[in-house]
Every structure is written in structure tokens, then in C-alpha cells.
Amino acid sequence: MPQLVTVRIGRPNGRPIRIWVPVLPLVLALSPLLVLAVPAAVVACLRYRVSAVQALSTGWRVVGALPGARFDLEQGRTAVHVAIR
């Protein structure tokens, strides 16, 4: 599971903005929403005849495979870097 998401936004004028997002505290903070989102996802799975267990396990796999992903975009003096650890 991802531990930290790092975002750096370089602007043409001024200092770059750096944001570190610790995933676990964020998930804990949003857990009340997750409690609502999971049943909603299960209902959607049942509605569209998709295995809810398979969908949840696949979703977890996707989240678990995120660490190591990195996206760097630069155009002139503007840049966006996103790294998931």
C-alpha cells in the first residue's frame, strides 16, 4: 500500500510548491467516507452483476501496486512531479 505521495509543482515565477501526502493518516481521516463508499460499491457491483469480492480485491490490488509510480511533466519552466512511494 502506498505510504507517501509527493507532489511538486514548479511555477515559472516563484518557488516550487512541494506537498507530501502521508497516505495512511489521510485514509484514516477519510475512513467515515470509506465506510459509506464500500457499501455503495457493493450495491453497484450487484446492480451490474459483477462479483463484489472480485471487484474489491482487484481494487485493493490496484492500490497495492501503486508504490513506485512516478509522473514527471515539464514544459518550459513549468513542471509537475508526482511520486508514489
Binding site: A65, L66, P67, G68, A69, R70, F71, D72, L73, E74, Q75, G76
Partner: peptide, 10 residues
């Protein structure tokens, strides 16, 4: 202007 995209996907 030079542009660069660097993507690393597991």
C-alpha cells in the same frame, strides 16, 4: 520551449 514527460508505471 523544451518539454519532457517521464512516466514510470509499475
Amino acid at each position: 520551449e523544451p518539454g519532457r514527460v517521464n512516466v514510470r508505471v509499475p
